[in-house]
C-alpha cells in the first residue's frame, strides 16, 4: 500500500507546530498503525531528519499510553480499540491520513504527538482510592459482592486512562474518565466509607485541571477503547449532588 501522512510536528511545548506531509510506499496491511510509524521513523532517521515522537508502550491495548487523533477520531476509525490495535488493513491504498495529538488545555503537547496527561494522575490522587493500609485488610470472602455488582464495577474499572474521552469530547471534558473511577468505588462496598468526599474532591480536581463540562454528546463512550458506559457519568452526577447536599463540608 501507498500511504500519505499528514503528521503534527511540534518541537516542544513552547513552539508552534504544523502538519507535515510524508509519503510511505510498501506499507503492509498487516502492520499495526504504530509499526507504520516505526517504518516512517526508520526512514526519517536514515535521511537525517528528526523522527516523530509519539507515546506508546505495551502495544496490546491495555497500558493506555498510545494516543493519536487519526483522521478526525481518537485512536482512528475502529471502535473499541486503541491506536496500537489499529492495523493498516483499515485503510485503503493511496489514503491520506491526518495524525494529530490529543487536544485539550489540560493535556499540553510535549513534543509532536506526545502530550502530558498527568492531570489524570492528579485527579486519582485527589480521591480515586480506598484508604486501606497494607496489612489491615480482613479476609477477602468476608465482603460479599454479588456477581452483577462485581461485573458492573469491573466495567468501570476497565478504563485504561488513555484520554480518548477527552480527545473526542467537543468540550475536552474528562467526565468519562473521572466517573469511571468514582462509579467503580461507589458501587463496591469497599468504597462506601469515603464515597461522598471522593466525589466532591475528584470533581473539584477535574475542574481545577481545566477540563470542560459534559454536554452528554456520548462521543467519549463511542470512542473509548474499553467502551465505558455513560451510566457511570450519571452515577457520578448522582454521587456528587448527593454528596454536596448531605456531606459535612459546609
Amino acid at each position: 500500500m501507498k500511504i500519505n501522512l499528514k503528521v503534527w510536528r511540534q518541537k516542544n511545548s513552547n513552539t508552534e507546530g504544523k502538519l507535515v506531509e510524508y509519503h510511505l510506499d510498501n506499507v503492509s496491511e498487516d502492520m499495526s498503525f504504530l509499526e507504520m510509524f516505526d517504518v516512517l521513523n526508520d526512514s526519517l532517521t536514515r535521511k537525517g531528519e528528526d523522527p516523530v515522537t509519539f507515546d506508546h508502550d505495551c502495544r496490546e491495548g491495555i497500558c493506555g499510553t498510545c494516543s493519536m487523533y487519526i483522521n478526525g477520531r481518537p485512536h482512528g476509525p475502529q471502535t473499541g480499540a486503541t491506536t496500537c490495535q489499529l492495523h493498516m488493513r483499515s485503510f485503503n491504498d493511496g489514503d491520506t491520513i491526518v495524525v494529530e495529538p490529543w487536544r485539550a488545555r489540560a493535556f499540553p503537547v510535549i513534543k509532536d504527538l506526545m502530550v502530558d496527561r498527568s492531570a489524570f494522575d492528579r485527579i486519582i490522587q485527589s480521591g480515586g482510592y480506598v484508604s486501606v493500609n497494607t496489612g489491615s485488610a480482613r479476609d477477602a470472602n468476608e465482603i460479599l459482592i454479588p456477581r452483577t455488582i462485581a461485573d458492573e464495577a469491573m466495567d468501570a474499572a476497565a478504563c485504561i486512562g488513555c484520554g480518548a474521552c477527552v480527545a473526542a469530547c467537543k468540550n475536552a471534558s474528562a467526565m468519562l474518565f473521572v466517573s469511571a473511577k468514582v462509579s467503580q468505588l461507589a458501587i463496591l462496598p469497599q468504597g462506601q466509607a469515603e464515597h461522598k468526599e471522593r466525589a466532591e474532591r475528584m470533581v473539584a480536581q477535574m475542574d481545577a485541571e481545566g477540563f470542560g463540562a459534559c454536554s452528554f454528546t456520548g462521543a467519549c463512550s463511542v470512542e473509548c477503547p474499553k467502551s465505558i458506559s455513560l451510566d457511570h457519568i450519571a452515577r457520578m452526577n448522582r454521587e456528587y449532588l448527593g454528596a454536596k447536599l448531605t456531606s459535612d463540608n459546609a
Binding site: K6, W8, L19, Y69, N71, G72, R73, V98, E100, R103, A104, R105, A106, A168, K170, N171, A172, S173, G210, F211, G212, T217, A219
Partner: peptide
C-alpha cells in the same frame, strides 16, 4: 477554553 488549539481535521 478547554481546547485552545482546535483539531485541524475532526470528524465528530
Amino acid at each position: 477554553a478547554s481546547r485552545p488549539v482546535k483539531y485541524a481535521y475532526s470528524k465528530p
